[in-house]
Amino acid sequence: MPLDRKDLLDLDDFSSDEIMLLLETTSAMAEILSRPIRRVPTLRGKTIVNMFYEASTRTRSSFELAAKNLSADLVNVSASQSSVDKGESLIDTMRTLQALGADMIVMRHWEAGAPYLAASWLDAAIINAGDGWHAHPSQALLDLFTVQERIGTIAGLKIVIAGDILHSRVARSNLWGFGKLGAQVVLCGPPTLLPRGLAEIAETESRITISYDLDEAIVDADVVMMLRLQRERMASGLLPSTREYCARFGLSRERMRRARPHALIMHPGPMNQGVEITPELAYSEQAVIEEQVTNGVAVRMAIFYLLASTPERLA
């Protein structure tokens, strides 16, 4: 089965079969990463552009390594060193990249929806590497893959996503991904960081639960995913103090004991150690945070490969 899509914008309209195809392909890509020579010639002659309007270390370098492992040519553009500084519009910048020969454009933008706008204007494949608070599908796919690899299944698991849900595109894409594969997702955080809209969805959707109490939410969890407190996006008044947040919503050894014995600890990074997670837990045996990063390369290879071989592009 090919993936019949031009772009990867979010997982909201993906079928569980499409997500499974991505995870199976990721598994094949992970095997390549274990070889003495971690490079295959698949995308020779293809050009991929990383267009980042927002800072990023792991996502940008992960996409870059993925492109190189598939032998594609890669160009990195960051908005701060480009014509964006001279006032060029989003569409003009993207059209320029396409005119330079980009077959695929990996795009991160601070505005939700920016990749959708680009996708509607361009023939090149647009891969959303994070748009505002909205979506981060490649992160959700690597989280799904990591859980599937470690536990063997996703259906029926209890996944707790805790912390700053309001500002988290990772939480939103994961909600779609884990939900479609049959997991129970608990979103947990202080009321000021849990958007009202999600609480409304939870009322009608049995797979989603909202909780304002981490001690209660974490009971019998198979996976505990902690989110970064995004202080750079935060308006004042959302939290009384970081210290209180840490006491009520930080992940500690004690709190983790309430989860299942071998439950996984995940974090999309970058971590605020001592805020949402203690350093002791971040480097514990239950933590799969570095595996998430490694798997990210394989997931992005799968995305590039499947988007390059869609029927539309082959026609």
């Binding site: 089965m1 090919p2 993936l3 199976e24 392909t25 094949a28 029927p311 082959l314």
Partner: peptide, 12 residues
């Protein structure tokens, strides 16, 4: 990769 009959499923 660019031909029509191509199927992208990768086996082990």
């Amino acid at each position: 990769l660019e031909r029509e009959h191509f199927r992208p499923n990768i086996r082990e």
